[in-house]
Nucleic acid binder design. Structure first.
Lengths: 249, 249
DNA sequence: CATAGACTTTGATCTATATCAAATTTTACT
DNA sequence: AGTAAAATTTGATATAGATCAAAGTCTATG
């Protein structure tokens, strides 16, 4: 075998065209499928693009589809009767959206940014889930990771200060966004830049803070020269290590 | 079929004796097993009792076993470098303890009270998980419920007041503890009583508060005649509805 | 059953973050 | 480009819950 260095070098005629370059192809649930299974999934699924600020599934409503996130950020949130809101999860490519074994969503699923999804009709997917153990195992594993992440964030909300939460949030986003790592030559220190996919209001709802507190903490990070921000959304992190350290205490 | 009214009326000679009356037999993962599979699980598993305050699995350590909780409460917690602690989950019978597909635990698993477990060696269980799709599906479903619960608690930590958290905590515990529902005749209003399985310190670590704040909130609930407390641990809830309402806002 | 040590409650104060209120920047629309 | 609306930042003040400090309870042990 001489192809071990790169398995994407061979064009797989068996694999649907759309899937060839897909974010979910290897790291997402599709990575658990054989070519014929992938072909079937591809037949019943459909790529769709959604604008920012749309509701994909509403609390207490029948969720119409499952999906893979291909681009952008999806937010999962809960609302209290008096209007207080908490974002309980953020999903990036190639995460899976939707809850198997339960048709009613108990949260709001909304687009935090412009989002591209590969949507899969409920029925067809549940069928596949029952037929293909490796698919179920993959989804199970992704759910375990989501549980880990949720618990990690529980620590932030229960025990971390605003400063730690904001630093941790930026660090987490930096790891998930299309990677603009600057070349180490031009200043090293682990510089990274990206566009924030969330408004200050969403950030506050994720971190259990107010927008004013989020803003003040961002200003502090700017003063400490850890980040630069332009046009509200454009972030340059000058020192990922320091940022990460700030998120730890 | 005339046995639909009660399926526990027939003594199943095929089912291990220990499992006959087990809490995990139907609602826990064992409910997903055929008699022969249950017999096998029974052969490799072992009931053990643990005192309060013991560490079952430590952060970064290889977890030696999986287990079903049969009695008592297990707490899952995370600790920050400076000692701040957050309990990220509580497990009651018949919950499953342990994380498949990952040998190192990334949290502390400790007994919050005296606990009885049905422990299952790592290797043997992973084998079964691979062989029995219905077992994996059951565990997947339980994981989804844990994720729902974790997200629910995220809302409490991010957006609820101390008063709401404490009321919600008591309500949740009431639903999980061996049920001493008082007869409606003797005063109605949904009276319930139970022994708190956690110290004030654990309660604080679960709710993201200090012990003083927990104590003050309990005192307020006493003054409002919603609960009575004796000997620190013995709780009588006089009005479950009001308690639940207090937890919502 | 008396006493020490561990919990828990209560009180006094402090502080991080919320709230209320402008000012400023950014975006979008004519 | 010029302006209105929206989003964000900054400032002043209020407050829920933390922290520090006793004073009570409870439990366990001799």
């Amino acid at each position: 075998m001489t192809d071990s260095e790169n398995d994407s070098i061979q064009p797989s005629a068996e694999i649907p065209e759309l899937c060839q370059e897909c974010t979910a192809r290897h790291r997402g649930i599709c990575g658990a499928l054989r070519p014929d299974e992938l072909t079937h999934l591809n037949k019943i699924s459909k790529q769709k693009t959604f604008a920012e600020g749309l509701t994909l599934m509403a609390d207490q409503q029948e969720a119409p589809f499952f999906a893979n996130v291909l681009e952008g950020v999806v937010k999962l949130s809960k609302t209290l009767p008096d209007g207080r809101q908490q974002i309980v999860g953020l999903q990036f490519a190639p995460d899976f959206v939707g809850r198997p074994f339960q048709s009613e969503s108990h949260l709001f699923v909304e687009t935090a940014s412009k989002v591209k999804l590969c949507t899969i009709p409920r029925k067809g997917f549940e069928q596949m889930l029952g037929d293909i153990p490796s698919l179920q195992e993959r989804l199970f594993q992704q759910t375990l990771v989501e549980l880990d992440e949720s618990r990690q964030w529980l620590v932030a909300l229960g025990r971390k200060t605003a400063s730690e939460r904001v630093a941790g949030f930026l660090h987490m986003i930096a790891l998930h966004m299309p990677n603009n790592k600057e070349s180490p030559s031009q200043g090293d220190k682990n510089t990274t830049s990206f566009d924030l996919p969330l408004t200050r209001s969403d950030m506050a709802d994720f971190m259990g803070l107010t927008i004013e507190t989020v803003s003040r903490q961002l200003s502090k990070l700017k003063k400490r020269n850890i980040v630069s921000i332009s046009h509200n959304r454009r972030i340059v992190i000058h020192d990922m290590e320091l940022l990460e350290k700030t998120s730890r205490e």
